[in-house]
Amino acid sequence: MRNLFLLFFLPIFLSCKNDVFPKPKAYLSLTYAEKTYESLKLKRPYTFKVLQNTTIIDDENNWLTIKYPKLKASIDITYRPVNNNIKELLTEAEKLVFKHTAKAEQIIPKDFINEEKKVFGSIYEITGNAASHIQFHVTDSTKNFIKGSLYFYAKPNYDSILPALNYIKEDILRLVETLEWKE
């Protein structure tokens, strides 16, 4: 019996010489192309800087879609002229933002004001598994109104898309900061 014990269990005890250490935390390493911006080339009542490696899709009524094919995302831009209906346009834009309340963990508003260029608006960052993670609207409050929404073409999983979201968020901030109305 003793020999049987030594035969089966002794190799187990002798084979475990190295200590086992937990592996260090791993982080997802994503690389994105260096950003270069250019002015929007389409004739619109507005202009702004857009990332060069995006695809611009021209839609009717001065609307457009800025596609990020590698990130499977797009920024949908809608334009509406202001005809004594600024309150209605602002209410509609905010309703679209707060439609995401059911899935959102948090909605963070940031106001934007550029008196020199007559660009006034808000950017809403929506955290959580919502359908759209950034929405914004800008206006000159007398003639022009733009609404924009960022969408990913994937099931909403906030943690997974966060690096791409942060990458595109910079582009949206650049868009709003460089926006100018054409007379």
Rank of each mutant, 00 (worst) to 15 (best):
G128L: 10
T47V: 07
K117S: 13
N129S: 00
K169G: 06
Y46R: 05
L6S: 04
L179N: 05
R174H: 08
A33E: 05
L40F: 04
I168W: 08
P22L: 08
T47C: 02
F98K: 12
F21P: 01
I57N: 04
S149R: 15
T178S: 15
T78M: 05
K99G: 02
I123R: 11
V119G: 02
T127N: 03
K67I: 06
D171P: 00
R80M: 13
L179D: 01
P24S: 04
T142G: 01
I57M: 06
F5A: 09
I146Q: 13
K25Y: 05
L173T: 03
L179G: 01
K99H: 10
K87I: 14
E125R: 12
L175M: 14
Y68F: 12
K67M: 07
S149D: 12
E170M: 09
V50S: 11
K95N: 07
F145K: 08
K99V: 06
L90W: 07
L42A: 01
S74C: 10
S132W: 13
I57K: 09
K147Y: 07
V138R: 07
I107T: 13
V97I: 13
H137E: 02
N18K: 15
M1P: 01
Y46I: 08
T178Q: 12
R174G: 00
E177Y: 11
A73V: 02
A93F: 06
N18F: 10
L173K: 03
L30E: 04
P11I: 09
N62T: 00
E183K: 13
T31A: 11
L51C: 04
T178E: 10
L7V: 09
P24I: 15
V50L: 14
F120W: 09
S39I: 03
L14Q: 09
L162D: 04
A73K: 08
N144R: 15
D111S: 15
N53G: 00
K95A: 10
E34D: 09
N53H: 10
S15N: 10
Y32N: 03
Q52N: 08
W63K: 09
T178R: 11
A131E: 15
S39P: 00
Y151D: 03
Q106V: 15
L96Q: 13
I126F: 07
A164G: 06
Y153R: 11
D19S: 14
N3C: 02
Y32L: 09
M1T: 01
Y124F: 14
N85S: 14
L14P: 02
T55A: 10
C16F: 11
S74N: 08
T101A: 11
K17I: 04
I107D: 11
F136P: 03
K143R: 15
K182D: 04
F136Y: 13
Y32K: 01
K23V: 13
D171N: 09
N3G: 05
K99L: 15
Q135V: 11
P24N: 08
H137L: 08
S149V: 09
K99C: 09
V119I: 13
N61A: 10
E177A: 11
P163E: 07
I126A: 10
S29H: 12
T36C: 03
T55C: 06
E183R: 03
L175W: 07
A154T: 07
E125N: 10
K169N: 07
A130H: 04
A130P: 01
S141M: 14
A102I: 06
K155T: 14
